[in-house]
Protein backbone atom coordinates (compact mmCIF):
# COMPACT_ATOMS: atom_id res chain seq x y z
CA UNK A 1 0.00 0.00 0.00
CA UNK A 2 1.41 3.32 -1.00
CA UNK A 3 0.50 5.66 1.82
CA UNK A 4 0.95 9.13 0.50
CA UNK A 5 0.40 11.42 3.41
CA UNK A 6 1.82 14.88 3.60
CA UNK A 7 3.66 13.88 6.73
CA UNK A 8 5.44 11.07 4.95
CA UNK A 9 5.97 12.28 1.40
CA UNK A 10 4.82 15.68 0.19
CA UNK A 11 4.18 14.49 -3.35
CA UNK A 12 2.73 11.47 -5.04
CA UNK A 13 5.17 9.12 -6.69
CA UNK A 14 4.24 9.49 -10.33
CA UNK A 15 2.16 6.54 -11.44
CA UNK A 16 -0.14 6.22 -8.42
CA UNK A 17 -3.03 8.66 -8.77
CA UNK A 18 -3.82 10.51 -5.57
CA UNK A 19 -6.28 13.13 -4.48
CA UNK A 20 -5.77 16.00 -2.16
CA UNK A 21 -8.38 16.01 0.56
CA UNK A 22 -9.02 18.34 3.46
CA UNK A 23 -10.82 17.14 6.55
CA UNK A 24 -11.73 18.97 9.72
CA UNK A 25 -10.56 16.53 12.35
CA UNK A 26 -11.39 17.41 15.95
CA UNK A 27 -11.84 20.99 14.80
CA UNK A 28 -8.49 21.24 13.03
CA UNK A 29 -8.19 21.43 9.23
CA UNK A 30 -5.84 18.71 7.99
CA UNK A 31 -4.90 17.95 4.38
CA UNK A 32 -3.42 14.86 2.82
CA UNK A 33 -2.69 13.43 -0.60
CA UNK A 34 -4.25 10.00 -0.55
CA UNK A 35 -4.91 7.11 -2.82
CA UNK A 36 -8.66 6.74 -3.33
CA UNK A 37 -8.52 3.23 -1.87
CA UNK A 38 -7.18 4.45 1.45
CA UNK A 39 -9.68 3.81 4.22
CA UNK A 40 -10.65 6.60 6.58
CA UNK A 41 -9.47 4.52 9.57
CA UNK A 42 -5.99 4.25 8.08
CA UNK A 43 -5.80 7.95 7.25
CA UNK A 44 -6.72 8.77 10.84
CA UNK A 45 -4.30 6.29 12.43
CA UNK A 46 -1.28 6.26 10.13
CA UNK A 47 -1.67 9.59 8.36
CA UNK A 48 -2.85 11.83 11.16
CA UNK A 49 -1.24 9.68 13.88
CA UNK A 50 -4.43 9.68 15.92
CA UNK A 51 -4.20 6.13 17.18
CA UNK A 52 -7.15 6.35 19.55
CA UNK A 53 -9.32 5.10 16.69
CA UNK A 54 -8.86 1.33 16.72
CA UNK A 55 -9.32 -1.16 13.92
CA UNK A 56 -10.75 -4.33 15.36
CA UNK A 57 -12.47 -6.78 13.05
CA UNK A 58 -11.81 -4.81 9.84
CA UNK A 59 -15.06 -6.32 8.48
CA UNK A 60 -17.72 -3.80 9.55
CA UNK A 61 -18.85 -5.84 12.54
CA UNK A 62 -17.21 -4.61 15.71
CA UNK A 63 -17.45 -0.81 15.72
CA UNK A 64 -14.03 -0.25 17.36
CA UNK A 65 -13.14 2.11 14.48
CA UNK A 66 -16.25 4.25 14.99
CA UNK A 67 -15.75 7.99 14.51
CA UNK A 68 -18.26 10.78 14.15
CA UNK A 69 -18.75 12.08 10.62
CA UNK A 70 -20.62 15.37 10.84
CA UNK A 71 -21.82 14.22 14.26
CA UNK A 72 -23.07 10.77 13.24
CA UNK A 73 -21.23 7.55 14.11
CA UNK A 74 -19.72 5.73 11.14
CA UNK A 75 -17.35 2.78 10.89
CA UNK A 76 -14.17 4.38 9.60
CA UNK A 77 -12.89 1.03 8.28
CA UNK A 78 -15.89 1.00 5.94
CA UNK A 79 -15.48 4.38 4.36
CA UNK A 80 -12.89 5.74 1.95
CA UNK A 81 -10.79 8.63 3.21
CA UNK A 82 -11.65 10.59 0.03
CA UNK A 83 -15.31 10.41 1.02
CA UNK A 84 -14.60 12.42 4.16
CA UNK A 85 -13.24 15.32 2.07
CA UNK A 86 -14.87 18.54 3.25
CA UNK A 87 -16.52 16.86 6.23
CA UNK A 88 -16.03 17.09 9.98
CA UNK A 89 -14.57 14.07 11.72
CA UNK A 90 -14.46 13.64 15.49
CA UNK A 91 -12.27 10.96 17.01
CA UNK A 92 -11.84 9.99 20.66
CA UNK A 93 -8.97 12.50 20.85
CA UNK A 94 -11.55 15.22 20.28
CA UNK A 95 -13.62 14.40 23.37
CA UNK A 96 -11.57 15.66 26.32
CA UNK A 97 -10.95 19.33 27.01
CA UNK A 98 -7.47 20.71 27.72
CA UNK A 99 -7.56 19.78 31.39
CA UNK A 100 -10.56 17.60 31.99
CA UNK A 101 -12.18 14.50 30.66
CA UNK A 102 -15.43 14.60 28.74
CA UNK A 103 -18.34 13.48 30.96
CA UNK A 104 -18.63 10.34 28.83
CA UNK A 105 -14.99 9.50 29.57
CA UNK A 106 -15.59 10.24 33.24
CA UNK A 107 -18.58 7.95 33.18
CA UNK A 108 -16.55 5.08 31.70
CA UNK A 109 -13.91 5.65 34.40
CA UNK A 110 -16.37 5.94 37.25
CA UNK A 111 -18.60 3.06 36.27
CA UNK A 112 -15.77 0.76 35.16
CA UNK A 113 -17.12 0.78 31.60
CA UNK A 114 -13.99 -0.84 30.21
CA UNK A 115 -11.51 -3.60 30.88
CA UNK A 116 -9.04 -3.93 27.99
CA UNK A 117 -10.24 -0.67 26.49
CA UNK A 118 -10.03 -1.68 22.85
CA UNK A 119 -13.70 -1.04 22.05
CA UNK A 120 -13.92 2.04 24.30
CA UNK A 121 -13.20 4.84 21.79
CA UNK A 122 -15.94 3.55 19.48
CA UNK A 123 -18.32 3.02 22.39
CA UNK A 124 -17.78 6.57 23.64
CA UNK A 125 -18.30 8.20 20.25
CA UNK A 126 -21.48 6.24 19.62
CA UNK A 127 -22.59 7.27 23.11
CA UNK A 128 -21.82 10.91 22.33
CA UNK A 129 -24.00 10.87 19.23
CA UNK A 130 -26.79 9.24 21.25
CA UNK A 131 -26.61 11.81 24.06
CA UNK A 132 -26.41 14.69 21.58
CA UNK A 133 -29.64 13.49 20.00
CA UNK A 134 -31.35 12.15 23.10
CA UNK A 135 -30.00 13.75 26.30
CA UNK A 136 -32.14 11.60 28.60
CA UNK A 137 -32.07 8.05 27.20
CA UNK A 138 -33.52 4.99 28.88
CA UNK A 139 -31.39 1.92 29.42
CA UNK A 140 -33.18 0.39 26.43
CA UNK A 141 -32.25 3.41 24.27
CA UNK A 142 -28.60 3.04 25.27
CA UNK A 143 -28.50 -0.68 24.57
CA UNK A 144 -30.20 -0.14 21.21
CA UNK A 145 -27.79 2.67 20.22
CA UNK A 146 -24.70 0.64 21.17
CA UNK A 147 -25.82 -2.48 19.29
CA UNK A 148 -23.22 -1.89 16.57
CA UNK A 149 -20.29 -1.78 19.00
CA UNK A 150 -18.98 -5.07 20.29
CA UNK A 151 -17.17 -5.56 23.60
CA UNK A 152 -15.58 -8.87 24.54
CA UNK A 153 -14.74 -7.94 28.14
CA UNK A 154 -17.47 -6.22 30.07
CA UNK A 155 -20.71 -7.94 29.17
CA UNK A 156 -21.94 -4.40 28.42
CA UNK A 157 -23.54 -3.85 31.82
CA UNK A 158 -21.04 -1.24 32.99
CA UNK A 159 -20.86 0.38 29.56
CA UNK A 160 -24.60 1.00 29.69
CA UNK A 161 -24.25 2.36 33.24
CA UNK A 162 -21.39 4.62 32.12
CA UNK A 163 -23.47 6.14 29.33
CA UNK A 164 -26.43 6.69 31.65
CA UNK A 165 -24.03 8.28 34.18
CA UNK A 166 -22.71 10.61 31.48
CA UNK A 167 -26.25 11.52 30.47
CA UNK A 168 -27.06 12.45 34.08
CA UNK A 169 -23.87 14.48 34.38
CA UNK A 170 -24.45 16.31 31.11
CA UNK A 171 -27.96 17.20 32.27
CA UNK A 172 -26.45 18.47 35.50
CA UNK A 173 -27.90 15.69 37.62
CA UNK A 174 -24.78 13.70 38.46
CA UNK A 175 -23.63 13.85 42.03
CA UNK A 176 -19.89 13.31 42.19
CA UNK A 177 -20.02 10.01 40.37
CA UNK A 178 -22.45 8.31 42.75
CA UNK A 179 -24.67 5.57 41.41
CA UNK A 180 -27.49 7.24 39.60
Amino acid sequence: MTSLFEEITPEASGDVPTRKITISINGEQRSANVEPRLLLAHLIRQGFKLTGTHTGCDTTNCGACTVLLDGEPVKSCTMLAVQANGHEVTTVEGLAGPSELHPIQEGFKDEHGLQCGFCTPGMMLTAKALLDRNPDPTEEDVRWALAGNLCRCTGYQNIVKAVLWAGDKLRGEADGGEES
Binding site: G63, L69, P73, V74, K75, M79, T126, A147, G148, N149
Partner: peptide
Amino acid sequence: ADPIVRNR
Protein backbone atom coordinates in the same frame (compact mmCIF):
# COMPACT_ATOMS: atom_id res chain seq x y z
CA ALA B 1 -27.66 -4.30 10.01
CA ASP B 2 -26.65 -2.30 13.11
CA PRO B 3 -27.18 1.35 14.13
CA ILE B 4 -23.80 2.57 12.87
CA VAL B 5 -24.12 0.86 9.50
CA ARG B 6 -27.62 2.38 9.21
CA ASN B 7 -26.06 5.86 9.28
CA ARG B 8 -24.24 5.20 6.00
